[in-house]
Design a binder for these strands. Structure first.
Length: 620
RNA sequence: GCCGCCGUAGCUCAGUCGAUAGAGCGCACCCAUGGUAAGGGUGAGGUCAUGGGUUUGAUUCCCAUCGGUGGCUCCA
């Protein structure tokens, strides 16, 4: 796949783009070819290949590019690799490094190159060269590793470089993991074995990176979700079907309440729709032919086939069509936290980030072409409001476009309309001076998207929120409005989900906040910690007052020591602890201790009540 | 879905080269009433994921299924 990426910059923002750099490095090599890290990582991957050939002389080599944290190389091997193989290979790599083999570049004609790799029986290299030949190349680059002591060639690879001077200069590396990967990324092809390595210029950088990975694992949403008792999965319920525990449900409902207030302010109307619909609906919408495999199989009843809904759009379209519309009604904005079910591949399920039942912050905006820019801008404004509220700063905004090859297959076959609508979105983004990247072949089948890409702490990329322009489906539903001249017109539809799904949003926020939610989102906002049980009576009095004010408060009336109670509240990441002892009872005070802070303040309960009321509400 | 790996108490994990299992935390009870990140004691908890197979005997070995997981593919 050719990956063309154009980056628009208006201001410097710090974005973490592991998979983007991955794409740039592996598929558009020139971009970073001058980079020193690129050279050492790429050279390290050659050294890995040499080590693997030493261990398995019959190994077939595929490709081995650098990536954002190191490198990988794909092989076809006579047996499955096991983790114990990695230290052995690492040792061999270090020996090769010690020899300081020269990287010697040369060019060969295509036919020479083909003959060479056929002779040493490397079919993947042969296939790559044949591909280059078809593209019209006449020469290809080779890199030989030459042992200086005896001038022997230890390893040869098809490669356009560049490399470091010798194998001693490949930085500090550590083989990280073994994985399966399809040849050329195509699931119809054979599965190869991929070895990933981390690689950095210095030992300190490598160690820091490995340490950072370990730290990241501590804030993995799957781990925190269990520790904080937010959600769970159960084998008898099914894979990818999360159960929200009481504390997680509070977060769900707080988010939902926020969304309802924000959407109300922006003029959305709330609608509600069933979880299932007849097959006809999805044939009409066009989803079924594209997504049948990832929908739960149909339920057959009374000669009808019903599907669990995988998206809310068709239901909303039907709601729009239920009453006649005039241009005076537009824009119409329907919002619903809609439950959807998608039969995602078992192998792609991942905690809360990739699930089979999800509840989406969905809305559909039906508007005229003239209203598009203003409506789209308002949606982006809403996104930016949310990002600021949550303090989300590591994300990438992406204009997801169609691909020419996909027209008529993955995408509605109307190229002029694609180009036009993609430009409409581009113009809005440029006007708002929002930095974004453009990526081909990432659109929805019915129109281009504006996506918010984020990365989980362990580095997987997800679309957090999405905003789509649909130029195809309203027509299929015969959705119309009467314009000022009395003519029937088809509205445009904007699909948008700034708060993602509850599942993915909370998964993301858990990692973002490392489990320490702000007061307004926290399942338990205040923990009452009496110094000893003799002060429980005062604590109960405060608890009643706080509950009455709508504050989520818990009292630790256990007989544990004070130190233990503090520790328990801290490990539960409760944002506010109120320590209550003799002094507090006497003066009707509370000693406020905030999560992660040792210093505390003693204030009157009255003052505390006023401030917690303020803090527990988000202004929209 | 594909290539690997994993599944022992509520949680985190040890262990059994084949003779039905342990620790810490948590939980219950008792003692201690303690001013800022684990006070002390006692006790209850397990068909060793599920179903087959091999074996005198399986939690342990083999196969399948379910679930998790590292990647790949996919992601409306």
């Amino acid at each position: 796949m050719q990956c063309k990426i154009k980056i628009w910059h208006f201001k410097a923002i710090e974005v973490k783009l592991p998979s983007l750099t991955h794409k740039i490095m592996s598929e558009d090599i020139q971009v970073l070819s001058e980079d020193r890290l690129y050279c050492i990582r790429h050279s390290a991957s050659h050294v890995l290949a040499q080590a693997v050939l030493d261990m398995f002389p019959e190994a077939k080599l595929a490709i081995g590019p650098p990536v954002d944290n190191g490198f990988y190389y794909d092989f076809e091997l006579p047996r499955a690799l096991v983790p114990e193989d990695l230290p052995i290979l690492e040792k061999k790599m270090k020996q090769i490094a010690k020899q300081r083999q020269k990287f010697v570049q040369s060019n060969k004609t295509i036919d020479e190159a083909l003959a060479f790799f056929k002779a040493i029986d490397q079919p993947y290299k042969v296939e790559l060269i044949e591909g280059l030949k078809e593209k019209g190349e006449t020469e290809v680059g080779f890199y030989e590793n030459v042992i200086p002591q005896n001038q022997k060639v230890a390893f040869v690879d098809l490669c356009k470089g560049p490399h470091t001077d010798h194998t001693g200069d490949i930085g500090e590396f550590k083989l990280a993991k073994i994985a399966g990967a399809y040849w050329r990324g195509d699931e119809n092809n054979i599965m190869l074995q991929r070895i990933y390595g981390y690689c950095f210029e210095t030992k300190a950088e490598l160690d820091a990176y490995v340490k950072q990975l370990e730290e990241a694992k501590k804030r993995d949403h799957r781990k925190l979700g269990k520790e904080l008792e937010l959600f769970t999965f159960d084998e008898e319920v099914g894979a990818g079907l999360p159960l929200w525990l009481p504390k997680g449900s509070i977060i769900v409902e707080e988010l939902e309440s926020l969304a309802k207030r924000v959407e109300s302010k922006y003029g959305y109307q709330r609608v509600r729709s069933p979880h299932i619909a007849k097959e006809e609906l999805y044939i009409r919408s066009g989803h079924l032919p594209y997504y049948k495999d990832s929908m739960y199989p149909p339920m057959e009843m009374d000669n009808e086939r019903y599907y669990l809904k995988a998206m809310n759009c068709p239901h909303h379209h039907k709601i729009f069509g239920a009453t006649p519309k005039s241009y005076r009604d537009l824009p119409v904005r329907y919002a619903e936290y809609g439950h959807c079910y998608r039969y995602e591949d078992s192998g792609s399920l991942f905690g809360l980030m990739r699930v089979r039942s999800l509840c989406m912050n969905d809305a559909h905006i039906y508007c005229s072409e003239e209203q598009f820019e203003s409506e789209f801008s308002k949606v982006i404004e809403m996104y930016l409001f949310y990002f600021e509220l949550f303090g989300i700063d590591k994300y990438q905004l992406r204009l997801s476009k169609h691909s020419k090859e996909g027209l008529g297959k993955k995408y509605i076959d109307n190229e002029p309309l694609w180009i036009k609508t993609e430009d409409q979105i581009r113009q809005v983004l440029l006007k708002l001076k929002v930095p974004f990247v453009e990526v081909e072949d990432e659109a929805a089948f019915y129109g281009p998207k504006f996506d918010v890409q984020i990365w989980s702490v362990i580095g997987r990329e997800f679309t957090l929120a999405t905003n789509q322009l649909d130029f195809g489906v309203p027509e299929r539903f015969n959705l119309t409005y009467i314009d000022a001249g009395g003519n029937e017109k088809t509205p445009l539809c904007i699909h948008r989900a700034p708060l993602s799904t509850h599942e993915r949003m909370i998964g993301f926020l858990l990692e973002h906040y490392a489990g320490a939610f702000p007061v307004w989102l926290s399942p338990v906002q205040v923990k009452l910690v009496p110094v000893s049980t003799v002060f429980n009576e005062y604590a109960i009095e405060l608890q009643q007052a706080l509950l009455k004010a709508g504050i989520r408060v818990e009292l630790d009336d256990s007989t544990e020591s004070l130190g233990k109670k503090i520790r328990n509240a801290e490990t539960a990441k409760t944002p506010i602890m109120l320590v209550l002892g003799e002094q507090e009872v006497a003066n009707k005070e509370v000693t406020v201790r905030r999560y992660g802070q040792r210093e505390q303040t003693t204030v009157s309960f009255e003052d505390f009540m006023a401030s917690i009321k303020e803090e527990s509400v988000v202004k929209v």
